[in-house]
Design a protein around this nucleic acid. Structure first.
Length: 168
DNA sequence: CGGGTTTGACCCGCGC
DNA sequence: GCGCGGGTCAAACCCG
């Protein structure tokens, strides 16, 4: 039913990010299918699903999991959105966060990003970087910061949905 | 010279 | 109303 696969240029060092292809009802798939792929995801974390920007014909959705542990303190808001086949997607401010084990903070996720800000966050020795999607008219933004207590992890927060296919 | 990045200023919502 | 924290702007800066 649900098959998961890592983006091919990611190694097993990277967690919490994957594409998901499906056959039937998206709103009722088992969260537990996800769990075995990611030790960070908690049982009661919310799952949000939205169409991945890709040019293929088969319906491919990108899924992220958001939970208390992965959300920057001030930005927590329920991202829950259910998508039904053939239904128009609801207009919501989509905001998803995931955590990646990595030494570098520049993770190639298939999109081009343009940095527009940097900020020191309170109670953290690490700066937070702000990026906007490079494509004209695309509303997507992302924040990248290193986890406060687990320095080997990078927290990336996406906001919005790409309105174009991935370049590169 | 041109584009993206840097970096301090600015702005805005919120709690006191 | 004011100060603080977080997000954004934009002019200077950097590097090809």
């Amino acid at each position: 039913m649900i098959s998961l696969h890592w983006k091919e240029n990611y190694t097993t060092d990277h967690i919490g990010y994957c594409d998901m292809s499906h056959s039937d009802d998206l709103s009722s798939f088992e969260l537990s299918e996800f769990l075995k792929f990611d030790e960070w995801i908690e049982e009661d974390d919310q799952l949000s699903v939205f169409p991945a920007a890709n040019s293929s014909q088969t319906p491919v959705y990108r899924a992220h999991v958001i939970g208390e542990s992965g959300v920057a303190a001030s930005s927590h808001e329920g991202p829950s959105i259910a998508i039904e086949e053939g239904r128009e997607m609801k207009e919501v401010k989509e905001r998803v966060a995931f955590k990646t084990k990595s030494e570098v903070e520049i993770l190639d996720d298939g999109f081009k990003w343009r940095k527009y800000g940097k900020k020191m966050v309170k109670n953290s020795p690490n700066p937070r970087n702000y990026y906007r999607c490079w494509v004209e008219g695309c509303p997507v933004k992302k924040r990248v910061e290193r986890d406060r207590e687990e320095q080997e992890y990078v927290i990336t927060t996406y906001e919005g949905v790409h309105n174009h296919p991935t370049s590169s």
